[in-house]
Amino acid sequence: MTVLSAEQLSKQYNGTLALNNLNLSVDKGEVFCLLGQNGAGKTTTINLFLGFTAASSGKAMINGIEVHPNDSSTRQFVAYIPEIVQLYGNLNGIENLDFFSRLAGFKYAGAQLSSFLLKAGLQETAHRRSLSTYSKGMRQKVGIAIALAKNADVILMDEPTSGLDPKATDEFTRICKELAADGKAIFMATHDIFNAVNVGARIGIMKQGSLVHTLHSNEITANELQQLYLETI
């Protein structure tokens, strides 16, 4: 069942084509990884699905609803994990989770909030610690917990493993797979080819705003993907 799709989606910024006629779909329980250089149009695609910017032409759809101008409706189905999960420095991990959950309309008890953080891989001792002691990986885990607490159908990730150490990346991959197994559709923009092959069911390669290749991860190895990627860009 398709939960996220783009139909001839294009975006122009001051005459420059940032996204050109994008067509793709992501099903429930599927992880779609989008590769591409900086400026290829990955973040523009995510912004269009989040409703942060309006499409110049075409449609960005979430659960069959066109994002623009219904972005306030479609956002309830979407969770977002940016490259660096920026949280409120004056609140601890559990308070941040509580705040962002309430924003999405969910009120959880302390134990429930803790369980989301644990599921996201954040150790209990860190839940009430000052955010200034959090590493990037720990912040990512709070970001995942926010997505879990929202129980969103679609999780949009913008270069989530950038800057994470190998262990943290591995843990993140495991969590992504668990989320997909739970039926979440994950759309991930990334530079990390090996992680894309590891976690993604399908992989797209973008160049100058166009989706040039779409591959199934079980049809290609990481090295082959790297070769194709380098030839494409």
Binding site: L50, F52, S72, S73, R75, Q76, V78, A79, Y80, P82, I84, V85, Q86, L87, Y88, F100, S101, L103, A104, G105, G143, I146, K150
Partner: peptide, 12 residues
């Protein structure tokens, strides 16, 4: 600080 994108995603 970058928190607004998350706020904007979470809130209707």
């Amino acid at each position: 600080d970058g928190t607004w994108r998350l706020v904007a995603t979470q809130s209707k």
